[in-house]
């Protein structure tokens, strides 16, 4: 049910408390366990989990079994890289082993997903360092819970010239960047961060004041 024009989903009351379980026992424990597990994946709720399970069952040979095998293999082989924290089946990972990359440049990211995003854009000539999260005292994430000591160790290497802090522009992300700046301040490396401002293809009219101010502050010569 939709409220005309506003796109709010107004769940009927019998749906609002819908759990993973089907109302009556319509499937055995094998299937129910599969649905429960799929529902734990990001972006999937109970309804879509049931759909995924059904889809897999219908594509048993072409999808379900190959997927199960791929999951097993990845679970067995893929580990975080001991150097940078990226996921790979080899350690050091393929990015760290790539001799074509600048050994004097490290880009620090919060998560492997950010590393992938930067790799998709082929934006970094150097290597990465995945922190594994951001500092958050309230959520119990302390400096020793992130890959910060290993970052400082890498930053101390003689060939190191620049460290790019590519944290998200969130409150915790920026606090973490500030903290890293303090931690690395004693080293003779250049510490930079990503620019904040007008997105490519963005219209000024649609930007909030904070973004506009940031864009103006970091303006550049034409």
């Amino acid at each position: 049910m939709r409220l005309a024009g506003f796109g709010f989903r107004l769940w009927r009351s019998d749906e609002s408390g819908l759990g993973v379980r089907m109302k009556r026992q319509t499937a055995g424990p094998e299937l129910e366990r599969l649905v429960t597990l799929i529902a734990k994946l990001p972006g999937l709720g109970p309804r879509s989990a049931r759909r995924v399970a059904l889809f897999l069952l219908k594509k048993r040979d072409v999808l379900m079994i190959p997927l199960a095998e791929a999951l097993m293999l990845a679970a067995e082989k893929v580990r975080p890289c001991g150097t940078c924290g990226n996921f790979d089946a080899i350690d050091p990972c393929a990015v760290c082993m790539d001799s074509g990359r600048d050994p004097g440049l490290i880009c620090v990211v919060e998560d492997v997903a950010d590393l992938w995003a930067l790799e998709r854009a082929s934006a970094i000539r150097g290597r990465y360092h995945v922190l594994g999260g951001v500092l958050s005292a309230l959520d119990g994430v302390r400096p020793q819970d992130l890959r910060i000591d290993s970052l400082v160790a890498r930053a101390t290497l003689p060939e190191m010239r620049e460290i790019i802090l590519a944290m998200n522009a969130t409150i915790d992300g920026q606090t973490t960047a500030l903290y890293l700046t303090e931690r690395l301040a004693y080293l003779p490396v250049r510490i930079t961060r990503l620019a904040q401002g007008v997105p490519v293809g963005g219209e000024l009219d649609h930007l909030d004041e904070g973004t506009l101010l940031a864009a103006l502050t970091s303006r550049r010569e034409f």
Binding site: A137, P143, T175, E182
Partner: peptide, 15 residues
């Protein structure tokens, strides 16, 4: 309260 890292406090106080 956790007697945490003083540099972390620096970062938070700057914010």
């Amino acid at each position: 309260e956790d007697q945490g890292d003083p540099l972390w406090l620096d970062a938070l106080e700057r914010r």
